[in-house]
Design a protein around this nucleic acid. Structure first.
Length: 1033
RNA sequence: GGGCGGUUAGCUCAGUUGGUUAGAGCGUCUGAUUUACAUUCAGAAGGUCGAGGGUUCGAGUCCCUCACUGCCCA
């Protein structure tokens, strides 16, 4: 057998990924009894004479196609794959549903920005269709890259089912969902003050807005108070503003009700000079602050969120003075068509000329900017579509979407891990704020509403019985009529269900126009668990996999996404979309900032996979995934030739390419002092120049996983080298040695522990438990101890002893490979294949044929009969002896090869245990057990140590190692002194505790007894150290 | 302003319902290469658990206040 000394992850990935594909490892289908899936065209073959497999589905939190994945996604994907592979091994039909999200505004903004930078074109230059085509091309690139990244991590997702939120299947579900909501009266059109991005000409959500300090001005003006006839009086009211152009939209002036300066004026009217509008002076405690400025403020409900709220409270008119592109509209009179900033200057001048201008000061203003275009947003009142979240105001129906989702979490049908996130979910839904679902974009699901407006009288004459009585199109169209009494119009809104193109054309011919807006991205992603399984069809997939098992995601989309999936799931399918939600930590960079594409601090998992291997990245990342909130991941840059490492600084992440004097683009570099070189590096925002040497991103935390993978690979290599002559078969209990029984006991307990931890999504703890077992117990102790039994002289006959050792070793290794597989699929599969060639049948108590692939093997079950607590305790005592001997060797700086003798004063049974494994002592500590028993005395010129148990009288056993000439009496004295000091400290602590009457009286008896026992041991250990010291004097 | 986290060894993090002497990986120091693995092995040093108060026989763990820090919502 020829196995390289080091595990080669790249080779294993290249080898096994195609094999899994071929075997359909990741394919998941509904059972034959439900029929063939229309999605995959397949059904699960009925297992012979057994129940169909239980389902377990995981829906990927669809990554958006704006860019490639970073380490945060890698964590998310690793967790999902780990859970999926684990459940698959447990016998579930495990589906991991992959796919990507069109991410409306984000993707459109990226493509538009690039188009402008590279070609100087705006979307209006190219038009709707051409822009959408360009975005599709972008999507193709990044979808491919994202799926490639997932595959390189070893994702066992069912790629036959890959979906994209704008594909036909998802679009159909969106249409069906929208139609049902509209028919049920849960969708309505209304006015709303939105964050308007004048550059992209769309509303942006609150979470797409950031605040930035900007140098601005604070102008002060006054409006004249008028009498009942509307004529100016001598009185006036003064206020200040940062946006004078909004004066054109002023509909009131507001003061605080308790502000005595203005009490007399409340109820009077003022004249807005530039518009001539007469507006009231109102009192509103929530808007006006008597402490600030003059205490009076102008009110522009259509252009300020606070004013908007005030307008609603006081029934004020909403007067919009802006066009969508940021210029002034017809309401602005002579200023119509001017950009708002241009108008601002002219308006100040005009007010000055009229004598209403009172001065200006400089001021730093917190200005909201659009995250998409990086330009300032304007609050703007506009028509938007909404989904009603709470109960209907008139009580006409009993649908309460938000409440249904709250109930699902309250009654436990949806459970959060960790549970603290439940509150985020229910608190947010509890506000029951209607969901604004329209976006003024071209990239997305176009709203399936056609509308036409009539003059009210004309409408009434024409449709005396009302529009809704159109009998022909029942079930295909849904209708709402909206009567605007002020304008004297009636608007008919038609929602058309899918597959009704003829109907659509018909309405368009009749003069109906389709709404130009598209739906909020979250509308389609809220349908993800339904639409991917075939909804609105009642497919076998939906019947079988829905509700899914667990949603694995990050806390920042609990409200935006998780909540909406739950309420849509309940509303549309009558059941929750998933039973568990595991919220994993977020990956931060070395400076504590969330990894994100826009910050430039994202690390491409592919770079790390290439450097450390997919298994290593997965294993390390899984060790992060517990119940905590954040994990820091500092990274460095590595010189590709010298290996020199330079830590990443914030400057590296923030650097942007710069234009040189000669016009070439200079990419940022990282400086390597030793190599005296500056090298370019990869970031998510741009590529290095082709052909130049590039610094590679490294993160030493991943050595944790890499080293572990190499460790398990080499432990397997050792086993495989020692399996010559292996035969399958049971092992007599009598043939099991102490170390065999110990490792089997530990295996049973660790298997149980890992299974429990995975069930709670505590992957970090599960990872540690697995690593500790494999490395610190199996490799460091069991493998070392079994070595003598495996040795076979050249040409010698196989012995029973060796055969038993091989069977135990193979059994434990087999279990380890299966336990480790969900973390490290490639290395386990690689070893599995090699092992299968030598030991195709294996396992205890009875050997069975190994599965063809580790990925298809069954999850190990803990054998409770193997657990032996007292044996583990005895074994720990033996380990303690070995450690103590090694300690002496280390302290005396004795060469590891120099043989030592051990004299042990202990109880007889302990001496017996030790005698039973005495052979291995040579292997473990190069020490020969010379004497053991109660009567052993300390030989002269020896180093001494005491253990925590095993003594003749129930106290600690003592060990002595004769050192002869090498003994350094001073050093030994010093060592024993230090030991005695430490013991005295502990003894004082324990004595203090026991001298406290309250402790003895009130603490549980076993705790008190424990302290007493420990104290006795400590005292005995101290006595031993003191007697050694006395002899050394 | 409201809510949820975090602060434990030089770094990155564990520490389950309060209970014996607070752990790991990396890093540091010392020593080791007859064959599973130097991506290794053995040993060592290193922490008044953010500060202050309280509850308790007993607090890293529970409660309060404060400081610093992150996220979410307004």
């Amino acid at each position: 057998m020829d196995l390289p000394k080091q595990y080669d992850p790249a080779a294993a990935s290249a080898k096994w990924a195609p094999v899994w594909d071929e075997a359909g490892v990741a394919n998941a289908d509904p059972p034959e009894s439900l029929g063939v899936s229309p999605i995959t065209g397949e059904a699960q073959a009925a297992p012979q004479g057994s129940e169909p497999k239980p389902p377990h589905a995981v829906m990927i939190p669809l990554p958006n196609v704006t860019g490639a994945l970073h380490m945060g996604h890698a964590l998310n994907g690793t967790v999902q794959d780990l859970v999926t592979r684990w459940r698959r091994m447990q016998g579930f039909e495990a589906l991991w549903q992959p796919g990507t999200d069109h991410a409306g505004i984000a993707t459109q903004a990226v493509v538009e920005r690039r188009m402008l930078e590279e070609e100087g074109l705006t979307r209006h230059d190219v038009g709707r269709e051409a822009l959408v085509n360009r975005i599709w091309a972008w999507k193709e690139t990044y979808e491919g890259r994202i799926l490639g990244q997932l595959k390189s991590l070893g994702a066992s997702a069912d790629f036959r089912r890959t979906r994209f939120t704008l594909d036909d299947m998802c679009s159909r579900a969106v249409r069906a969902a929208f139609f049902k909501l509209f028919s049920d009266g849960l969708i309505y059109r209304g006015k709303r003050l939105v964050n308007w991005d004048t550059h992209l000409q769309t509303a942006v959500a609150d979470d797409e807005v950031f605040e930035e300090e900007t140098q601005g001005n604070f102008w002060t003006f006054h409006y004249p108070v008028v009498n009942e006839a509307g004529e100016d009086t001598k009185k006036s009211i003064q206020f200040s503003t940062t946006r004078p152009e909004t004066m054109l939209g002023d509909v009131a002036v507001c003061v605080h009700p308790s502000d005595e300066r203005y009490t007399a004026l409340v109820g009077e009217r003022v004249r807005v000079p530039l518009t001539g509008r007469l507006v009231p002076i109102i009192a509103d405690a929530l808007l006006a602050d008597p402490e600030k400025g003059t205490g009076a403020v102008k009110v522009t409900p259509a252009h300020d969120p606070n004013d908007y709220a005030c307008g609603l409270r006081n029934g004020l008119e909403m007067l919009n003075v802006l066009n969508p592109d940021g210029t002034m509209n017809a309401e602005a009179g002579e200023y119509e068509g001017l950009d708002r900033l241009e108008a601002r200057g002219k308006i100040v001048e005009a007010m000055d000329a009229l004598g209403f201008y009172d001065g200006v000061e400089d001021r730093v203003i917190q200005l909201k900017h659009s995250d998409r275009s990086k330009t300032p947003v304007e609050p703007l009142l506009s028509d938007q579509w909404f989904v009603r979240m709470g109960p209907s105001e008139d009580g006409s129906d009993d649908v309460d979407l938000a409440q249904s989702a709250i109930d699902a979490v309250e009654d436990g049908s949806v459970r959060f891990y960790p549970s603290r996130y439940k509150k985020t979910f229910t608190d947010w839904l509890g506000e029951k704020r209607d969901w604004c679902i329209s976006r003024q974009l071209w990239w997305g699901h176009r709203i399936p509403i056609w509308s036409k407006t009539w003059d009210a009288t004309e409408y009434d004459e024409k449709f005396a019985k009302g529009w809704t009585e159109n009998p022909d199109e029942d079930g295909v169209v849904a209708v709402q009529t909206v009567r605007d009494e002020d304008a004297g119009t009636v608007t008919v809104l038609i929602c058309i269900a899918d597959d009704a193109e003829e109907t659509e054309r018909g309405y368009e011919t009749a003069g109906f126009e389709r709404d130009p807006d598209v739906l909020d991205t979250w509308f389609s992603s809220a349908l993800w668990p339904l639409e991917t399984l075939g909804w609105p069809e009642d497919t076998p997939d939906l019947q079988y996999f829905y509700p899914t098992g667990v949603l694995v995601t990050s806390r920042d989309i609990i409200t935006l996404w998780v909540a909406r999936m739950v309420l849509f799931g309940k509303y549309l399918r009558g059941d929750v979309p998933f039973q568990h939600v595991y919220i994993h930590p977020k990956i931060l960079d070395g400076f504590g900032r969330t990894m994100s594409k826009s910050k430039g601090n994202g690390v491409d998992p592919l770079e790390l996979v290439e450097k450390y291997g997919a298994d290593a990245v997965r294993f390390t990342i899984a060790s992060f995934a517990g119940e905590t909130q954040d994990v820091r991941l500092p990274v460095s840059y590595e010189h590709p030739e010298t290996g020199e490492i330079v830590q990443q600084t914030q400057a590296h992440t923030e650097a942007k390419p710069e234009q040189a004097d000669d016009g070439t683009l200079l990419k940022p570099t990282v400086h390597f002092p030793k190599a005296k070189k500056d090298l370019q590096y990869v970031t998510p925002s741009y590529e290095p120049d082709p052909g130049v040497p590039v610094a590679r991103v490294v993160a030493d935390r991943f050595e944790y996983g890499r080293n572990f993978c190499n460790k398990i690979y080499n432990a397997s290599r050792f086993a495989i080298f020692n399996l010559e002559g292996y035969t399958p078969g049971p092992v007599d209990a009598a043939a099991l040695q102490l170390e065999d029984r110990w490792i089997l006991s530990r295996l049973a307990r660790v298997t149980e522990e890992i299974t429990t931890l995975l069930g709670r999504y505590q992957l970090d703890a599960a990872t540690r438990a697995l690593r500790g077992f494999v490395w610190d117990e199996f490799c460091d102790w069991y493998v070392e101890m079994v070595k003598p039994r495996l040795r076979l002289e050249e040409g010698a006959e196989q012995t029973d002893e060796r055969a038993a050792a091989q069977r135990v070793l193979v059994h434990v290794l087999d279990s380890i490979l299966r336990l480790l597989h969900p973390w490290a699929p490639f290395v386990t599969e690689e070893v599995w294949a090699t092992l299968k060639a030598i030991a195709p049948e294996r396992g205890l108590p009875e050997p069975v044929a190994a599965a063809d692939l580790c990925a298809l093997a069954s999850w190990p079950e803990a054998n409770a009969e193997d657990v032996d607590e007292s044996l583990e305790a005895r074994f720990d005592a033996l380990k303690e002896v070995v450690v103590a001997v090694r300690n002496v060797r280390g302290v005396y700086n004795l060469p590891p090869a120099a043989p030592l003798a051990l004299h042990l004063r202990s109880a007889e049974d302990f001496a017996g245990d030790l005698g039973a494994v005495a052979e291995q002592f040579d292997q473990l500590a190069r020490v020969v057990l010379a004497k053991a028993g109660a009567e052993v005395t300390r030989p002269p010129a020896s180093a001494a140590f005491s253990l925590s148990s095993g003594g003749a009288d129930g106290g600690p056993a003592e060990g002595f190692i004769p050192l002869g000439d090498v003994i350094d009496l001073d050093a030994e004295r010093e060592r024993q002194q230090a030991e005695a000091e430490k013991l005295r400290g502990h003894i004082t602590g324990h004595e203090k505790k026991l001298s406290n009457e309250n402790f003895v009286a009130r603490a549980p008896a076993e705790v008190v007894e424990g302290v007493r026992e420990t104290l006795a041991t400590l005292k005995a250990q101290l006595a031993a150290a003191e007697s050694v010291l006395a002899e050394l004097r």
